[in-house]
Simulated assay, not measured.
Amino acid sequence: MEAVLSKLGLADEGGGPVAPERMTFSDDGAIPNTRLATLLFRSRGLDPQLDREAVADCFAPLFTANGWRPSWRGGVYDYHHYHSIAHEAFAVLSGWGRLRLGGEQGDDVEIRAGDALVLPAGTGHCHVQASEDFLLLAAYPEDQRELDLIRADPVEHDAAVARIAKVSRPERDPLGGELAHWWP
């Protein structure tokens, strides 16, 4: 997998996955978020010979080999929402996008082709702006086959918090690193 990580610009000096930026967001009463860090693996630059399909052909088997099942391609909804029964990973296949993470008062994060983002269950996310060619590949841990979609709603909050507490933690992040290192 070292060659794949290198093509995606996601290999560190030793050939393993780059260390992610880690962000945490507070519960705002409508979006629970979580104490687990959102992980942003920033690409150092894609191999220039890779087009969008080749990037997808790199990410899909990488995610699969690490226990994250690729599910769909597309963008992110333009309203604040979260998932209470699954963690979610995105690979940016092309373009760039700005997402607001953590709810209305959260932080805007720009992601670009080659980047990978891991959202722990409960983490709010929303599309803010993107290039016309922005495309994501989404993936979920193998044991998390169901996916809910919950808008920012205080009425749903407490039940969602209870479900989030029961979501299992995968052994590895989608790039192959030990997830316990990032989610102690």
Score class of each variant (00 low, 15 high):
E2R: 14
V4D: 06
L8H: 02
G9M: 06
A11L: 06
D12W: 04
D12F: 02
G14T: 12
A19D: 15
P20R: 02
M23R: 13
S26R: 05
S26V: 11
S26G: 12
D27A: 09
D28G: 10
G29E: 10
G29K: 03
G29R: 09
G29C: 08
I31L: 09
T34C: 02
R35M: 13
A37L: 05
L39E: 03
R42L: 03
L46Q: 05
L46W: 08
P48C: 04
Q49D: 13
Q49K: 12
D51W: 01
A54I: 03
A54F: 03
V55G: 06
A56D: 12
F59H: 01
A60E: 14
A60Q: 15
P61R: 03
L62Y: 03
L62F: 04
T64M: 09
N66C: 09
G67V: 12
W68Q: 06
G75Y: 00
Y77V: 14
D78R: 08
Y79T: 13
H87F: 06
E88K: 04
E88I: 13
V92G: 00
L93E: 04
L93F: 07
G95M: 06
L99Q: 06
E104L: 11
G106A: 06
D107Q: 14
I111R: 00
R112H: 05
A113I: 02
A113P: 00
G114W: 00
G114A: 04
D115C: 07
L119R: 01
L119M: 12
P120L: 05
P120A: 11
A121N: 14
G122C: 05
T123E: 01
G124E: 07
Q129P: 06
A130C: 13
S131L: 09
L136C: 05
L136G: 00
L136K: 00
A138T: 10
A139I: 11
Y140K: 03
D143Y: 08
R145F: 06
E146C: 07
E146T: 12
L147H: 07
D148L: 11
I150Q: 08
P154H: 04
E156W: 07
A159W: 06
A159H: 11
A160K: 02
A160D: 05
R163V: 04
P170H: 09
E171K: 10
L175R: 02
E178L: 13
L179I: 11
A180T: 15
A180C: 13
